[in-house]
Design a protein around this nucleic acid. Structure first.
Length: 811
DNA sequence: TCATACCGGGG
DNA sequence: GTGTACGGTATGA
């Protein structure tokens, strides 16, 4: 009996995650809400379009808004034009209303609501929380239990990439002169305007449209597709009067409001949109990059070139051209721009395959279009639709959104126990702490009577472990492995956002600040327990943050001792909360909370936090910090002094190239704007531009500026900045070409940069040395002192904070 | 100096 | 008819 019941629950919860209708091969869905849904499917590789009858639905709080229909209102199952069915349970949205088409449905509701409220209700959305109306395709997917891509593997979906090359960034003024296209079979080529006229550009756009129609891809991709290429293309097509039929139905692009889209209309109206090409899915690899980096946080930046290089997708002789020089380069050396543009589309295809697996897998679960799943956040974009579908499948009424009761949300714990240098470091942390606590203590939203969120989290965790295991078993680089890894990444993403869903205030349907606070309270409790128990085993606590602890172990401990201590503490934590031995390091410089440097046993140096890595920081300072911190962490105080002296000498003798002292700044004012405020307030960067003879520049331009005895100057940016990949300890961030600049005037203000070295950079080491020692190590070589204590006798120190300095902080 | 507003990307 | 979070930098009081 109970076994049968368990099986029933299990099947039901599977349906909550994956849907229940196993129609294979769906690659796109589109509906105008007219009672017909266009479904494109890949069947044995061929594309099939099915036009399905479908009755649109909405959820309504007040049935009386339909009372005016009288006998024309049918019960669910009738073939009358509008039907209503009451759902079970306490939720506010308890009437499921359907009709043959959306217009009839919404007209009936607004008519009734107008009468009830005594004023004209023009659109159901004016009913706010009293109604739930999804996009027509989502209504279809929710009601049928179908999802995208069932039984399809990644290569089964036809993907095409295109990338515009333009004369500038402003579509009102600049033109498209070249388009790189890559077809599903991997062939890539460029389409080019024959001349710089309207006619030439219009013909180019028309050729792109023809090519898309001929290739007929299911998916169109590019990096920043929704932020740049599509809006630019749409505006140029509109200006030139070229029809932009990139979809499989309709004459042009459609749009939807999207917070993460581009601003449209005159400034002031804050409407942001993304474009839709019905019948195809428009996928932006920038979304995949952001989603990946959200969890991994290992990318040097989110630009195409930087990410492609980081992931090993870029060829060794990848053509690089600075954005503002592409058009000019094309005039001189068109082949170079062609290679550049083709590399772009090829990298996009590689990026999509490498990072796109999560969205591909999510689309097989959530009742939304693939492109929506790909660009949505996990909480409102994935979990909420899953919950809506689960409730409707269970025949249960949905709660409406509710504003919080004023309770503030409390966050994670952060403690700094000691600052300075410590040795034999162990890092222990809990993987997926918050979802683990939700599972362990059954913390879910109070209004979730079905227990759907916790059931989903449980299932997601189990299935993720299965997907991870399956990925490990599959051959490296195989399609199968790729699929399992994508599934695993997708599941992890949703699992980890379950807590965010709880804590999202009024943004999510089942948000519950009390439940969220219970999760973080348990989290702080768990972290405190970990710290206490680790300390009881003889380690020195250094820093603890949310779900992890850094600590120094006694000199006589072996790695086995370290692992044993962590395992002992792990055994004291609640079941399902798994403390892991995350890593061990030779030494750590603890500076401030979230600001530290780690020296691994293999010699690799990692620096974290603003104090140690700022993209703005002058390269010479960063280079000095790397050398000095490394010396410090191996206990070599004379080495710290030597690094300092070497840099001071290089500055004073001007053997250091100018670019090493430059700061990168972004110009945010136009020459005209700056001219108007110049008399009231001078700004260094602009003065440096003017002093260097630069009278024109564009807003957003990045320049490198440095200080001279007279003022400031700028130097030109290198060819293209790909971002520092941060596997440092090579030559630093500069290219050899720049180091070898023969025209370098080296007229920087050396004393200014010496002061900066001491006051801005050396201070990062202050907590690791006794004050007297610090003064000696960073004393100016020109100021002789009668008595200097021997550097070799100095040792880095570690200062333990008193209890009050361990600062718990809310978010 | 500290708080807050805004950005991340694309040519 | 939608909605991330976070760490960094630029800005204003």
């Amino acid at each position: 009996m109970s076994v049968v019941w368990e099986a029933g629950v299990s099947a039901r919860e599977d349906e909550w995650l994956w849907g229940w209708d196993h129609t294979p091969g769906i690659v796109s869905v589109w509906s105008e809400g007219d009672g017909v849904v266009h479904v494109w499917r890949r069947v044995d590789g061929a594309l099939v379009r099915e036009d399905v009858r479908f009755r649109p639905w909405l959820l309504l709080e007040r049935a009386e808004d339909l009372a005016h229909l009288g006998s024309r209102l049918g019960r669910d199952g009738d073939r009358t034009r509008i039907t209503i069915r009451e759902l079970a349970g306490p939720g506010a949205l308890r009437h499921l209303v359907r009709a043959d088409d959306l217009a009839t449905l919404t007209a009936a509701v607004t008519h009734g609501a107008s009468a009830r409220l005594g004023h004209r209700v023009g659109h159901v959305r004016e009913l706010g929380e009293g109604v739930l109306l999804l996009a027509p395709e989502e209504q279809y997917l929710v009601a049928t239990g179908r999802t995208y891509f069932r039984d399809l593997a990644w290569p089964d979906v036809r993907r095409m990439q295109f990338d515009l090359e333009t004369t500038g960034l402003d579509a009102a003024r600049d033109r498209i002169f070249l388009i790189a296209v890559r077809e599903p079979d991997g062939r890539a080529e460029t389409l080019e305007a024959t001349d710089g006229t309207d006619r030439g550009e219009a013909a180019l756009i028309a050729r792109l449209v023809e090519r898309v129609a001929a290739v007929d891809p299911d998916v169109i991709e590019n990096h920043n597709l929704h932020g740049f290429d599509l809006p630019f293309l749409e505006q140029r097509a509109r200006i030139l009067g070229v029809p932009l039929a990139l979809g499989r139905v309709g004459a042009g692009l459609r749009q939807r409001t999207a917070q993460r889209g581009v601003a449209v209309g005159d400034r002031g109206s804050k409407r942001r949109i993304r474009f839709i090409a019905p019948g195809r899915e428009l996928i932006d690899t920038l979304d995949a990059v952001r989603r990946h980096d959200f969890a991994a946080r290992d990318l040097p930046g989110h630009g195409l070139k930087a990410v492609a290089r980081h992931l090993g997708l870029a060829g060794p002789d990848r053509e690089l051209i600075r954005g503002d020089k592409i058009f000019a380069t094309f005039a001189r050396d068109p082949e170079r721009v062609r290679r550049y543009a083709i590399a772009d589309v090829e990298e996009v295809a590689g990026l999509s395959r490498t990072l796109g697996g999560a969205a591909f897998a999510l689309a097989q679960m959530a009742p939304r279009r693939y492109e929506r799943v790909a660009d949505a956040g996990a909480a409102t974009g994935v979990i909420d639709p899953l919950l809506v579908r689960a409730y409707l499948r269970a025949g249960a009424a949905l709660p409406a959104h509710e504003p919080g009761d004023g309770t503030t949300h409390s966050g994670a714990a952060l403690h700094l126990f000691a600052a300075g240098v410590a040795h034999r470091i162990v890092k222990a942390d809990v993987a997926s702490l918050y979802p683990s606590l939700m599972r362990a203590f059954k913390i879910g939203p109070a209004r979730d009577r079905q227990g759907a969120l916790l059931a989903l989290v449980d299932r997601l965790v189990t299935q993720r472990l299965a997907a991870k295991a399956a990925a490990k078993l599959a051959p490296p680089h195989s399609a199968e492995r790729h699929r399992h890894e994508g599934t695993s990444a997708a599941l992890k993403l949703i699992v980890n956002s379950a807590y965010g869903y709880l804590a999202a205030g009024g943004l999510t349907r089942f948000a519950d600040v009390h439940a969220a606070n219970e999760v973080t309270r348990r989290g702080r409790e768990t972290l405190a327990l970990m710290c206490r128990e680790l300390a009881a085993r003889g380690v020195t606590l250094l820093e603890a943050d949310t779900d992890g602890v850094y600590a120094a172990v006694p000199p006589e401990w072996t790695e086995a001792d370290e692992r044993r201590a962590v395992a002992e503490v792990a055994a004291l934590l609640p079941p399902l909360v798994q403390l892991e031995f995350e890593g061990r390091y030779a030494a750590m410089l603890s500076h401030e909370p979230k600001n530290y440097a780690l020296l691994a046993y293999d010699g690799a140096l990692t620096m974290r936090g603003v104090a140690f890595r700022s993209s703005r920081a002058e390269p010479y300072g960063a280079a000095f910090l790397r050398d000095a911190v490394r010396a410090l962490l191996v206990g070599d105080v004379p080495g710290v002094r030597a690094a300092y002296l070497a840099m001071v000498t290089a500055l004073r003798e001007r053997s250091l190239p100018t670019i090493e002292v430059c700061a990168r700044v972004r110009l945010t004012k136009s020459p005209g704007q700056y001219a108007t405020i110049r008399d009231t307030r001078r700004e260094f960067a602009y003065e440096a531009m003017i002093a260097s003879g630069r009278t024109t520049w564009s807003i957003g331009e990045r320049v490198r500026v440095y200080r001279t005895a007279q003022g400031g100057r700028v130097i030109d940016e290198p060819d293209e900045d790909v971002g520092d990949d941060d596997d440092d300890d090579e030559l630093g961030p500069l290219s050899p070409i720049l180091r070898d600049n023969r025209n370098d005037p080296r007229d920087y203000d050396a004393e200014h940069y010496v002061r900066m070295l001491r006051d801005q950079f050396a201070t990062r080491l202050a907590r690791a040395l006794a004050p007297d020692d610090f003064a000696v190590v960073f004393a100016d070589p020109d100021q002789l002192s009668l008595f200097t204590p021997p550097l070799a006798a100095m040792r880095p120190i570690l200062t333990t904070m008193i209890e009050d300095d361990a600062q718990p902080r809310g978010t």
